[in-house]
C-alpha cells in the first residue's frame, strides 16, 4: 500500500508452526500454539490481538527471551534469512538479538537508561555487535542520530535522557534499534497510549527507517488504526493461534473470521457517524481453560454445533488470505 519498497521473493523471516507453552499450576498454558507467518524485506506485518492473545509471547519467542522454566518453545522453526534461530546456542542468539532482529518498545521514557548520556547509549549498542575502532564508533553513533533527525546531533550526544523531550527520546530509541542495521524490527506497543500527535511522529519515523534500510517491520498492536495506517499484511491472533491472515485490504474489505469481523465492527470510526457499534459479548478466554473446539465459539454470533466440538482447520480464502473457521468449510 503506502509502502513503496520492493518485497523480494525470499522472506527475511519465516515462522513455522511455533509453539510456546508454559507450565502452570492449572496445567499447560499454550500461549502460542502453532503460529506461522512470513515477512519479506520492506514489508510490514501487523500482529493484532487483545491482551493475553499471545502476541507478546510470539515476539518474545522470536527473540528467545521466554523465561525457561516455566516457558518452553515446544516446536517450530524461526528462519531468519534461512537460518533456524531455534538451533542457535544462547551465545549465538545474543549476537543475533539487536544486530539482526531488533526490538523497539514504544515507551521512550523507560527504554533509556537515565544515568548514561545519549551518545554513550547509542555507542554501546554499536560496540556490542560490531567490531570497529573507537573513533569510528563515535562517528557511527553520530550518523544514526542524524538519520533519525536529531537536530545538532553532535551536542546532543553529550545530553542525558532527562534533558530531552519525549519525542526526542523516541528518536534516540529508534536510533539505537537501527544502529546495527537489523533486517527485522519488531515494534511492540505498550498498553498505555501515546498522544495522537506524538504517535503520528513516531509512526512516521518508523516508516522512514524502514524505507531507508529496507527493513522487515512487525507491529504488535491491538489497534486496527495502526494496522490500517502502517501495515501491508495482517495476522489476527486469538487464544494463542492466528485465526486469520491476509493482506491489509483482504482483512479490512473481506474479514473472513467472525472475530476479525466483530473487532472491525466494534471500533468507532473517525470519518463517519456510526449508529451503534457491534459489541462482542463476554471476554477473551483464559488460556488454561480453553473450550474444546473453536475458542471463539462462546462469543461467536455464527456458532454452529460443529464449532464446539472440533477446532477449525485453516481454510484458504484467497491466494494470500486464510482463516480458521468452520463457516468457510
Amino acid at each position: 500500500m503506502i509502502n513503496g519498497t520492493q518485497a523480494t521473493d525470499q522472506p527475511i523471516l519465516e515462522v513455522k508452526d511455533l509453539r510456546t507453552y508454559f507450565q502452570t499450576r492449572w496445567g499447560t498454558v499454550k500461549a502460542v500454539d502453532g503460529v506461522s507467518f512470513d515477512l519479506h524485506r520492506g514489508e510490514t506485518l501487523g500482529l493484532v490481538g487483545e491482551s493475553g492473545s499471545g502476541k507478546s509471547v510470539t515476539m518474545l519467542s522470536l527473540m528467545q527471551l521466554i523465561p525457561i522454566p516455566p516457558g518452553r518453545i515446544v516446536s517450530g522453526e524461526i528462519l531468519l534469512d534461512g537460518e533456524n534461530l531455534l538451533e542457535l546456542t544462547e551465545d549465538q542468539m545474543s549476537k543475533v538479538r539487536g544486530s539482526q532482529i531488533a526490538l523497539i518498545i514504544q515507551d521512550p521514557m523507560t527504554s533509556l537508561n537515565p544515568v548514561f548520556s545519549i551518545g554513550n547509549q547509542v555507542m554501546e549498542a554499536i560496540k556490542i555487535h560490531q567490531d570497529i575502532p573507537r573513533k569510528s564508533v563515535w562517528e557511527k553513533a553520530l550518523d544514526v542520530l542524524r538519520k533519525v533527525n536529531i537536530p545538532a546531533a553532535e551536542t546532543r550526544m553529550r545530553d542525558y535522557p532527562h534533558q530531552m523531550s519525549g519525542g526526542m527520546r523516541q528518536r534516540v530509541v529508534g536510533a539505537i534499534s537501527i544502529s546495527c542495521q537489523p533486517s527485522v524490527l519488531i515494534a511492540d506497543e505498550p498498553t498505555t497510549s501515546l498522544d495522537v500527535t506524538i504517535q503520528a511522529q513516531y509512526l512516521k519515523l518508523l516508516k522512514e527507517l524502514q524505507r531507508e534500510s529496507n527493513l522487515g517491520l512487525i507491529f504488535i498492536t491491538h489497534d486496527f488504526g495502526i494496522v490500517a495506517k502502517m501495515c501491508d499484511k495482517v495476522a489476527v491472533m486469538y487464544a494463542g493461534k492466528i485465526v486469520e491472515q491476509g493482506t491489509v485490504r483482504d482483512i479490512f474489505n473481506h474479514p473472513s473470521h467472525p472475530y476479525t469481523e466483530a473487532l472491525l465492527a466494534s471500533v468507532p470510526k473517525l470519518e463517519e457517524d456510526v449508529d451503534r457499534l457491534y459489541s462482542i459479548e463476554g471476554q477473551p478466554p483464559a488460556l488454561h481453560d480453553l473450550p474444546p473446539g473453536c475458542p471463539f465459539a462462546p462469543r461467536c454470533p455464527y456458532v454452529m454445533e460443529q464449532c464446539r466440538e472440533e477446532y477449525p482447520p485453516v481454510f484458504q480464502v484467497d491466494e494470500a488470505h486464510s482463516a480458521a473457521c468452520w463457516r468457510l468449510a
Binding site: G52, P70, P285
Partner: peptide, 26 residues
C-alpha cells in the same frame, strides 16, 4: 455474560505473575 463471574473467567494471567505464583507456593 451470565456465567462470567470474574476470577475464573477473568483474562488470562500474565506470565511473570504465573512464575511469581509458583515461587510463592514454595
Amino acid at each position: 455474560m451470565a456465567e462470567a463471574t470474574g476470577r475464573l473467567t477473568a483474562a488470562p494471567i500474565p506470565v511473570p505473575v504465573r512464575i511469581a505464583r509458583r515461587a510463592w507456593r514454595l
